[in-house]
């Protein structure tokens, strides 16, 4: 059978869809890629308040990695990141699994758990600043109940201040993860549960070895959401401690902001933000490889 029509070249397929996506592609290229390149370019200059093109090589980076405050910031981000990643996932999944037991008032509980997510980080930070304040908050309350030697003042103790911030972060964020997980759990076919029960597999084992592996895409979605929240953590710290006591709760995003706008040293701020970008890329590339490479194999 002879072809009555020449097949159209591949790039002409779905013309209207491609046309429609041009503005977005353009935005992505100019805003994201363009501004990123601009930032990286000027991180090699000694720009102060306004960008200039006096190249100083790697000076900004050398200074950055010699600055104690930056090192503390990076360390804090690692602690906050690892803890918040694990705790959010575990807590979110546990809450979702508990809600999934066909309990009463599920809607009410779901709202309660998700509610903190409706608050901004600034409000969350301020609320927890009060709760953790030794003179008014938890410590005061427990002392009034009779335990007069009880001490709980994470925000005023340099060694544990980052955990005080972590508590607030988890409180705010785990509700969302719970919702995503719950949606994932509801997506599991009830036949699978029935089959597991017929085979006599205990519930917890079913969760661990059957349900969780089936929820891989849900976990990846949650992971991306949590990870992007970690890298940009800024307002929570500003509201709770403004980096204190001393520099004990500084984070990289705050370093970037302070250097760019307060110290009027754009070059240094750009160098720091380039390092932040680098850390995201280091995490993003293996993830993208797993995600998209996996599909091709399938």
């Amino acid at each position: 059978m002879a072809a009555t029509q020449q097949p159209r070249p591949a790039w002409l397929k779905n013309m209207s869809a491609k046309l429609a996506s041009i503005p977005m592609v353009f935005t992505a290229l100019v805003i994201f890629v363009g501004c990123t390149l601009w930032t990286v370019y000027y991180s090699f200059t000694n720009s102060k308040l306004l960008p200039n093109s006096n190249f100083v090589g790697l000076d900004q980076y050398t200074r950055l990695w010699e600055t104690n405050r930056w090192l503390v910031s990076v360390e804090n981000l690692v602690i906050y990141g690892v803890c918040s990643l694990i705790l959010s996932l575990v807590l979110g999944f546990l809450l979702a699994a508990l809600l999934d037991q066909k309990i009463r008032f599920e809607n009410t509980f779901r709202s309660i758990f998700l509610y903190p997510f409706a608050l901004s980080f600034i409000v969350t930070g301020l609320v927890w600043q009060w709760i953790l304040n030794p003179e008014y908050g938890v410590q005061h309350l427990v002392r009034q109940l009779g335990w007069t030697s009880f001490t709980f003042d994470p925000l005023y103790n340099a060694d544990i201040v980052i955990y005080g911030i972590l508590i607030a972060g988890i409180w705010q964020g785990s509700g969302l993860i719970m919702c995503i997980m719950l949606a994932g759990l509801r997506g599991i076919d009830s036949e699978i549960w029935k089959a597991a029960r017929v085979d006599g597999i205990p519930t917890w084992k079913t969760y661990l070895w059957v349900v969780i592996p089936m929820m891989k895409p849900v976990f990846i979605t949650a992971l991306v959401l949590i990870a992007s929240g970690i890298v940009k953590v800024y307002d929570l710290v500003v509201a709770q401690t403004s980096g204190g006591p001393g520099i004990a709760s500084e984070v990289p995003a705050k370093y970037v902001y302070d250097k760019m706008f307060q110290a009027q040293n754009l070059g240094q701020g750009f160098a720091a933000s380039t390092m932040m970008l680098l850390s995201v890329v280091v995490i993003l590339i293996p993830w993208a490889y797993l995600q998209f490479g996996g599909k091709r194999r399938g």
């Binding site: 102060k48 104690n68 001393g246 520099i247 004990a248 302070d258 250097k259 110290a263 009027q264 040293n265």
Partner: peptide, 16 residues
């Protein structure tokens, strides 16, 4: 301002 903030960072670290 750059030097002022660097001194600030140092002192606040020292202080705490």
């Amino acid at each position: 301002p750059d030097t002022v903030t660097q001194i600030e960072d140092l002192i606040v670290e020292f202080w705490n």
